[in-house]
Amino acid sequence: MQAPTKAETIRRKWPSVPVRSRLQLLKHNRYWKHRYLTILLLPCIIYFFVFHYFPLYGVQIAFKDYKFLAGINGSEWVGLENFRKLFAMESFNNAFRNTLIISFYKFVFGFPAPILFAILLNEIRLVFMRRFIQSISYFPHFLSWVILAGVFTQFLSPSTGPLNLLLKEIGLDAVYFLGNPEWFRSVLVATDIWKDLGWSAIIYLAAMAGINPELYEVAKVDGANRFQRIRNITLPGIAPVVTIMLILSIGKIIQDDFDQVMNLYNPAVYGVGDVLSTYTYRTGIESIQYSFATAVGLFKNVISLIAVLIANWIAKKVSDSSLW
């Protein structure tokens, strides 16, 4: 069988239109018009369908009583049973609350920290110093929490840790940072910021690198001091990136760092430190309850999505830049 000619295809597709005009139609198809752009976009779209949209059928586990042998599609539907079970547990609600509180602190202190760091670093004039400091600042990003937990347990020890020795030196009482419920969340927030400060700053530094240096020279000639230059040139220059990061961080408000909490917490601080992922781990995965774990995951994702939609909407109203 021979492939139909182009004219033939067009005739089949638009039978009521004269051939000449049909050719025109194709020419006027917007994807055809931007065919080079379409080609450029295509691999990306295929990728998202194959590796993100297609596997989505797995989400149904959350609404099923999942059995290995029956498979995902063959398992029995149980409706919202898994969710009902979830919300009925007091411990789940406690973990949920902790997650929100810890994420909120991480957001309030952790979001501005790398921006501040990037700005301050940008103000250092000795180029080699700037590079040196930046290179060092992202070191901790590469160390796993397994290793860091060991280091922090020693560093924060009330009897032998250097930090407490310092506190005692200046006449304060030693604080049991990891064993005291009042301090534990602060420890989580502080260590989290410390670990990713330099790494998160990379994107802001990249944005600053994109700012035209002439702007600074002109401002200088006009007599603007350093703070004015930061406020009027640097900040507006990185504003779009800040907005995106802000929207995304708000979406992360329900995400937590499993590795961090798992490695740092102990029974004394369960009450304030137990978060959704550690909770799900203890009750779900340890006892092969995939449906249950998937339900928690889906719950988290829906909340994230709503948070991002709201943040994006606000960002659009306020600053005109948004995720899409």
Binding site: V146, I147, L178, A268
Partner: peptide
């Protein structure tokens, strides 16, 4: 509370 083993 945090125990006798500090990692390792």
């Amino acid at each position: 509370i945090t125990g006798e083993n500090t990692g390792d």
